[in-house]
Design a binder for these strands. Sequence first.
DNA 1: TCGCAAAATAGAACACGTTTCACTTCTTTT
DNA 2: AAAAGAAGTGAAACGTGTTCTATTTTGCGA
Lengths: 192, 192
Amino acid sequence: MDDRAKRIVETAVALAERDGYQAVRLRDVAATAQVALGTVYKRFASKEEILIAALEQEVDKLVARIGKKPVPGDTPQERIHFVFSAVSKGLLRRPNLGKALVRSIASGDPNITERVASFHGVITALVMTAIRGGTPTDPGTWGGDADERERTIASILQNVWFSSFVGWAGGLHEASQLLTDVDKTAELLLPA
Amino acid sequence: MDDRAKRIVETAVALAERDGYQAVRLRDVAATAQVALGTVYKRFASKEEILIAALEQEVDKLVARIGKKPVPGDTPQERIHFVFSAVSKGLLRRPNLGKALVRSIASGDPNITERVASFHGVITALVMTAIRGGTPTDPGTWGGDADERERTIASILQNVWFSSFVGWAGGLHEASQLLTDVDKTAELLLPA
DNA sequence: TCGCAAAATAGAACACGTTTCACTTCTTTT
DNA sequence: AAAAGAAGTGAAACGTGTTCTATTTTGCGA
């Protein structure tokens, strides 16, 4: 990502953080990033793609923060709690940004399908590492039949988390319910 | 809902079904429904609200179809499969409509929070009935402490279903994965 | 039936995502 | 250093959601 693209994404993040999705007006983004509107569209195909780029940036920061060390916690439950807590933190601390990103993720835009899939993939990898313990960015020993159950559990946890995240973004419940939902699910799915 | 409002929603459904969310152009809706644009906005605050009204109509049809009889199936798993199958059917059979409705549900628009909550409430009720067996529209004996576990399970199942639904709408996977995800979750959560 | 308030209408107007275009400014190649 | 092409710019223009207004139509109580 070149300099201009970085400024564009940073500006979009700042605007989303301050006043939410609808405040990310591309004319304002362009002006604030000191770039022409046409340049914005030379870098990004749409507003959604700018926000997805912002999401990727957040994910990169997250992985840089927690990906290098083994997931802390003595039980799968504790480690799962830690991972989802870390994932949620950045998004909940800036609610307007978080809601704007959810909206993009859930927009259904076919042009961003791959990047949304990649986002889900990163979360899945983190959760699987949390279940069995270890370091997220280590390949470890994956792929065997015995992983099937863990993969299913990771997928369920991620679905619960994501759905609850969307619910929070839509005003259905408080942020605290995110971790409550995940914890309850982990409790039922994992041997004590 | 008066006559004009009905025509508006019907038209929106028809357009969404044919060509998806972006094809629900309110000028077209108005013209096809033989109504002025201003009239559309007297009935509905926004495009999202029209689509949410369409969702409510679908939900009503669903409840009319499966709400009066006991949920069929001898085990909770079978009954859960039946309920989610029924819920998904109407939306998957008309994929463009389904995707348009998901988009509205997940839009995060605060003006529709209550109606989205009500939608989730209906699904939850159906699922809880499926878990213990019985007739959805019967009050039955709810609310005790012993229901807590069932309520949690229902909520998890619903979250998994919804998240998978959003994933399908975004092109992440095939429609068939919806029921696969739910079945796997039910298998892990419920005593055999 | 008359008169009036509410509802509906046609159409203009505005906001913002997106596209297009004519022009300028870099960068690279020779 | 000059030419050529790539990238950036400013501004206009288009589509569609949303709002506004002036006018007409409708329904209803007197």
